[in-house]
Design a protein around this nucleic acid. Structure first.
Lengths: 340, 340
DNA sequence: ACATTAGCGGAAAGGTTCGTTCCTAGATTG
DNA sequence: CAATCTAGGAACGAACCTTTCCGCTAATGT
């Protein structure tokens, strides 16, 4: 009866690759009678996957939308696309689905053939994704931790504390929490015998995941719950400005996919950081005026000055080598404006 | 023996939800004997899904990575995350996988329960995604066209020509081609009786897809092939600059996830538009010098001036109403710097 | 070293299911 | 009206599935 199961899977796959199939097409492709196909269709329906059928010369079978998602059968390229999409989503390009993306990514990563895994990381390294302030989180580390949480496996890593000192930790990972661009791991620290919260960007995993553990009761209070309650779809921004753009509303709407009040050209974009906002506004390719947002004005001033310095320095084109030596000198010391 | 097929599917699902399972766990969950589980594991292996098994007290079963991707069994939230991720990927946040993302999206969209579809679009509307120059393409339109191509169904839409005049078209869609941020549809125009290329952002679909058609031979020359040959993973940027950042390489690497030559702090970021590059550099929060890239210098100058104007206008805070009237006046006319 | 836990797989029994070959009926399109 | 599809019942022989036993091997922890 292995044949039957395989055939059902292939049927689902075919229905996802193309929408309409006649029973004769399916029969020849799977090497069985049309009667068997008919039986299989019945089986699929019994399994909960509704198959629409239409008689007549333009008829055929078609997989309908069920209440539950059928198994997805992806080919190599599509799998890579999904993985890459999830990684960028996990990185915070859309507010509210980071955690879920990481979970799905952990699921996919575990069954992803290694050759595809290489393609995913290769693709990502060529990417200049969502600009972000603050340190980047390695998606591999993220999925590793997510898997460990899911499978309840101990985790060992080096942790750079705020002070800069590194320490080796051994924890039981429980939750991965996302706040704007930052990721936190809530875990039971085995050495300290207490709950700790770690910043994921400071975690450097060490060795394979350890043995499985039996979960403890999570602390009831915690801001974990608050974080989780933030929920899907609730976009909250840290900064919000009111801006008037000197261009038709339709023009603005065409460039920024956010709701803009018509015939006003005034809108209130939000962002996690005023500098980000400034950059978005720069993309509008239209003049604008800021209403009541001193942070944004500051950010603009900051950027303008920095750009001006870059322009001045670059005008003297032969300055290349000189600058290079100057930078070498700076190399060991942190930049003037450190990360927040 | 529908039971058996359903059980295999559930087994796969369980293996994706958690990694390790003992046969007793699986047996109680599925309501069968452990011997049956053992048989099922054998079946899975015969189907090509390798199941690792380890004896002993810490042992159990675990789905290994096969050469082919097993069917993905996602829950609601994960499905939404995948859909959203694919949409952003299709929108061009990563070079080279746009077409594939749209294909996968079409596949997913067709089997996605309607309640999830709503959640996806709801989430997207809260998004301020990849900043982009040029008009945005509606992902719904994109997937609709992709489905029509795949299923060989006629398509009817209103098309805004470059001149602004709208016309109703009826076509046989063949290929969806992506060039940087733009999407093109290669189709056979039924009214003109010839091949035409349409810009997707100017397409407004009309009514459901029409009857199926038998495919014609695609023109052999065409730049279609060249576009397709661009292939996955080959990241080509339109502009490329050489920049020296006055900060440690580690600092830069932490903020931009791209390869940076160590101890040089010089790197060559690429982007589709010099202005984009300028904005990315602005996010580094460190001074930089441009080597040999006049376009980038121009872009910087452009931005600086625009920001300066915004700052000047915003300093006089009471200018709000004055500007508002000025903008009203401009409202019907396009902005000075139109879209390219 | 020993007990415990887990997977491995053969054999046999019994009931069920499968795929096929027929056939007729109903719906839709052109 | 003819062609083209799906729908589904009947019957038959072969194949398959689940279960119950059983002894075996391999890893782990005390």
């Amino acid at each position: 009866m292995l044949e039957t199961s395989a055939r059902l899977l292939r049927l689902l796959s075919l229905f996802q690759a193309r929408r309409d199939w006649t029973s004769t097409e399916l029969a020849t492709r799977l090497g069985v009678t049309t009667r068997t196909i008919r039986n299989d269709i019945g089986r699929l329906r019994e399994l909960g996957y509704p198959v629409d059928a239409r008689p007549g010369v333009a008829g055929g079978y078609r997989l309908g939308t069920s209440s539950a998602l059928p198994p997805l059968l992806l080919d190599d390229e599509e799998a890579v696309a999904v993985a890459v999409g999830l990684r960028t989503a996990a990185n915070g390009s859309i507010a509210g689905i980071e955690e879920t993306s990481v979970r799905a990514l952990a699921k996919l990563q575990q069954v992803l053939p290694s050759r595809l895994r290489h393609r995913v990381s290769a693709l990502q390294s060529y990417t200049l994704p969502m600009p972000s302030r603050g340190p980047q989180v390695d998606p591999d580390v993220l999925t590793l931790i997510a898997s460990a949480c899911r499978d309840r496996e101990r985790l060992r890593f080096d942790y750079r504390a705020h002070s800069g000192a590194a320490s080796r930790r051994s924890v039981e990972p429980y939750r991965l929490v996302n706040d704007r661009r930052r990721w936190y791991l809530v875990a039971w620290d085995l050495d300290r015998d207490d709950w700790r919260t770690f910043r994921v960007d400071r975690i450097e995993p060490h060795g394979p995941t350890g043995p499985r553990f039996t979960p403890r009761a999570l602390p009831p209070d915690q801001k974990i719950t608050a974080q989780v309650a933030r929920g899907v779809g609730e976009a909250t921004w840290r900064y919000r400005a009111r801006v008037i753009v000197h261009a038709p509303a339709a023009y603005v709407r065409g460039r920024l996919p956010i709701p803009v009040e018509v015939d006003r050209c005034a809108f209130e974009p939000g962002s996690d950081h005023p500098e980000m906002l400034a950059l978005y506004l720069g993309l509008l390719d239209a003049d604008f005026t800021i209403v009541d947002s001193p942070e944004l004005v500051d950010a603009l001033q900051n950027l303008t000055q920095r750009y001006q310095r870059a322009i001045d320095a670059s005008q003297q084109t032969s300055a290349c080598s000189a600058h290079r030596s100057r930078h070498h000198q700076q190399h060991e010391s942190p930049p003037e404006s450190g990360q927040s």
